[in-house]
Design a binder for these strands. Structure first.
Lengths: 241, 241
DNA sequence: CGGTATCCCCCGCGATACTG
DNA sequence: CAGTATCGCGGGGGATACCG
């Protein structure tokens, strides 16, 4: 049972839901089309199963999502209700604000598992070669146990792996993690970083050439950042290098 | 230090701030023009001084508000920064959602102290008599220690009191608390409740007549509620009475 | 009045083990 | 695999006292 504010105010009633830890991010994932418990955990690598379960239950109670058992297969599917979808503008508004004004990223914010999930949601399949393509991402400046991940396109179906998928790699992307995330977020230009060799590609020339078209970048990449931060000083340093 | 999500995602970074208990309501109060610590406590009767202080500090750190010492007088003034004002659409969006979809109010949500604060912020001074006018609100269905409060207009300056202000009362408003709050929120019609005598006025006829114009109602009263709730069954019962 | 430091309790949450 | 119960701890936050 969520804690209450003792106010009839609609903002307070809404804040009882949205103001609970993780809830906003769960809603964002559902808005991205994620429906299964396991996928929610992959979208939010640091949430525990217990807590995710609790939050889903209270969101169901609040009338924000529906939980339906899946007839073929185990478990449930979680989908937003009409009320849930009406929170989309709020969540997106928060995202825009975050892109413009949120604090600078710290090393701990750069969990590559979440990055992998985001990327795999926003691959531009139509620009990719038919058949199977395997991308390998390799980062410096990341925790040892998740320096690499793989994105697979198998005939239009995109998957992500934390473990090596076993197939041959078609294209490898190497970068400092922070730098790549800044490009992903639109704080730096991906093409500039590629041209300068600070994000490096290894593989056939035709893949290297079209790779920038495969990656759609963060949905908020086009929103201009207002808050001047560390990334500026970094980019000035890199100019001096 | 707020808990983090381990994600670079702008929504997550923004949610670190907005997802903390009370923060949204503090921002709402600031957007209503409240600037002083004490007034914030009156707007949010159930927050403790300790916690309010903490939250104000972390909002300052986040670049959402400025804290300036007041030259004449003690204490500080808290005002939103440009970044803070850009959260207005998010907070208002939440309010709209709350008005449309939030759960029904329970008795514990009806704290009259917060109601008094809201009302005093939205009195239509220009429609009120010149000079001093004293309104007394009396509720049934409220906790003993706050069944009454007073709203004063002193030459265009509106104040609220929890204790009897000492002046003669010009108009008394009597109602069941829940019913009045539902009228305030626009879930019921104030004029209908007045006409039916379920919200009663006591005082000179000219005041009774113009009272509905003095009260601006909640800023969200015009937003139509979608979620069918207890208030409907209540209103059906009242029709049968 | 306008806040800040301290103490201490409670519950939110992670880890673990469990079930269909 | 897709979740759910149980247990134990850590810290968030309320009460209180204190300071300017």
């Amino acid at each position: 049972m969520p804690k209450k504010y003792g106010q009839y105010c609609p903002v307070a009633l809404a804040a009882e839901i949205m103001g609970e830890r993780w809830t906003i991010l769960i809603l964002l994932a559902l808005m991205d089309g994620v429906r299964r418990f396991n996928d929610l955990q992959r979208a939010l690598p640091r949430i525990s199963a217990t807590l995710l379960s609790q939050r889903l239950r209270s969101l169901e109670q609040a009338g924000v999502l529906n939980k339906k058992s899946v007839n073929s297969g185990r478990g449930y599917e979680y989908t937003l209700t009409e009320a849930g979808w009406e929170l989309e503008s709020v969540v997106m508004g928060l995202g825009q604000w975050g892109q413009r004004w949120a604090r600078d990223m710290e090393p701990d914010d750069l969990d590559p598992r979440h990055l992998a999930w985001s990327i795999h949601l926003r691959m531009n399949v139509e620009k990719m070669p038919a058949g199977r393509t395997v991308l390998q991402f390799e980062f410096t400046g990341a925790p040892k146990d998740c320096r690499r991940f793989w994105i697979l396109n198998s005939g239009g179906q995109i998957d992500m792996c934390i473990e090596h998928p076993g197939f041959d790699v078609d294209l490898t992307i190497k970068s400092d993690l922070r730098r790549f995330v800044e490009a992903w977020r639109g704080i730096r230009s991906l093409r500039t970083e590629l041209a300068a060799g600070r994000i490096r590609l290894e593989g056939p020339a035709k893949f290297k050439r079209s790779f920038p078209d495969w990656l759609l970048l963060s949905a908020l990449a086009h929103v201009e950042r207002e808050r001047a931060g560390k990334e500026h000083s970094l980019s000035q340093r890199s100019k001096k290098e």
